[in-house]
C-alpha cells in the first residue's frame, strides 16, 4: 500500500513537471504580453498588472491584421492544395501499380529530409522565374515542399490499409476512379485528412525562412516574419511586450484548432499504423 501511494505521488509529480515544462514558456509569454513599461523586466511569475496596451499597439503600429490574414490565406491554401494533391497522389501510389512506384515513394520521403536552407536558393530561382516574388503565391508554392512529402506519405499508407474489395465493389457498381476517391475513400480517410491537414497547417503557419526570403514589403509578410521584424521606438529597443502580445495572438488559433480536432487527430495518428 505504501509503495502504491509513493508510486502514485511520484507519477503525479512527474506529470506536474512535464506540464510545467510544456506550458510555462507559453504562460510566461501570456503574462509578459499583459505587462507594460518597466513591469516587463520584473521576473515575477504571477501577473501583477494587467494591461492590453501591447495588443493595441501591435495592431496599430503595423499592418498586423493584414499579416494574420496573409498567414491564414497561405496556411489554408497550402492545406487545401496539399490535401488535394496528397489524396490524388496517394490513390496513384497506394492503388495503381506502376514501374518505379517504390522508388518514387522513397524519393518523396527523402525530399522531406533536405534541410530547408539547402533548397532555399534553388527555390528562390524558381520563385523569380515564375514572377511571384514578394507575393503570397511564392509562400504557398514553397511551403508545399515542406507539407507535401508527409501528406503524401501518410495518406498513401492510410489508403493502402483500406480493403481493396471496397474499391473493386465500387468499380463493379460502375464508379470511375475519381468517384471511388471522392465517394468511397474520402469519407473513410477523414481522420487521416484531418491529422495531416492540421500538421500541414501548423507547418505553414509557423514557417519562417521562406516567408522571410520571398517577401519584401510589410503588407506581404506572414505572422512569424512580422513578429521577428517588430521594431520598437528606437533601433536599440526590442519591443518585448509587443512581441509577446503578437505571439500569443497567433498561437491561440492553432491551439484552438488542435483542441477542436483533438479526438480526430488521435484516431488519425494511429489509424494509419493499425487497421482503422
Amino acid at each position: 500500500m505504501r509503495t502504491s501511494v509513493l508510486a502514485r505521488t511520484g507519477f503525479w509529480l512527474l506529470i506536474v513537471a512535464i506540464v510545467i515544462f510544456a506550458i510555462f514558456p507559453f504562460y510566461y509569454a501570456v503574462i509578459s504580453s499583459l505587462r507594460s513599461g518597466q513591469a516587463l523586466f520584473s521576473a515575477a511569475v504571477w501577473p501583477d498588472s494587467v494591461s492590453i496596451a501591447n495588443y493595441v499597439s501591435v495592431f496599430t503600429g503595423q499592418p498586423f491584421g493584414r499579416n494574420i490574414l496573409n498567414s491564414v490565406i497561405v496556411a489554408v491554401s497550402v492545406v487545401a492544395l496539399s490535401l488535394f494533391l496528397g489524396v490524388t497522389a496517394a490513390y496513384a501510389l497506394g492503388r495503381v501499380s506502376f514501374r518505379g512506384r517504390g522508388l518514387l515513394l522513397f524519393t518523396i520521403l527523402s525530399v522531406s529530409m533536405f534541410p530547408q536552407v539547402a533548397v532555399l536558393s534553388g527555390m528562390f530561382e524558381l520563385v523569380r522565374a515564375f514572377g511571384i516574388y514578394n507575393s503570397l503565391w511564392s509562400l504557398i508554392l514553397s511551403n508545399m515542399i515542406l507539407t507535401l512529402p508527409f501528406t503524401v506519405w501518410v495518406l498513401t499508407t492510410f489508403m493502402r490499409e483500406l480493403p481493396k474489395e471496397l474499391e473493386e465493389a465500387a468499380f463493379v457498381d460502375g464508379a470511375s476512379p475519381w468517384t471511388v476517391v471522392r465517394r468511397i475513400f474520402l469519407p473513410l480517410m477523414w481522420p487521416a485528412m484531418v491529422t495531416t491537414g492540421l500538421l500541414a497547417f501548423i507547418v505553414a503557419w509557423n514557417e519562417f525562412l521562406f516567408a522571410l526570403t520571398f517577401t519584401l514589403s510589410t503588407e506581404q509578410r506572414t505572422v512569424p516574419v512580422a513578429i521577428a521584424l517588430l521594431t520598437g521606438a528606437t533601433q536599440f529597443e526590442l519591443p518585448w511586450g509587443n512581441i509577446m502580445a503578437a505571439s500569443v495572438t497567433v498561437t491561440v488559433p492553432v491551439v484552438v484548432l488542435v483542441l477542436i480536432f483533438q479526438r480526430r487527430i488521435v484516431s488519425g495518428l494511429t489509424a494509419g499504423a493499425v487497421k482503422g
Binding site: 480493403p163 474489395e165 471496397l166 473493386e168 465493389a169 465500387a170 468511397i184 473513410l188
Partner: peptide, 8 residues
Amino acid sequence: FQSYALYP
C-alpha cells in the same frame, strides 16, 4: 465479395 466489401 468474400469480405462483403460494404461501404462502411
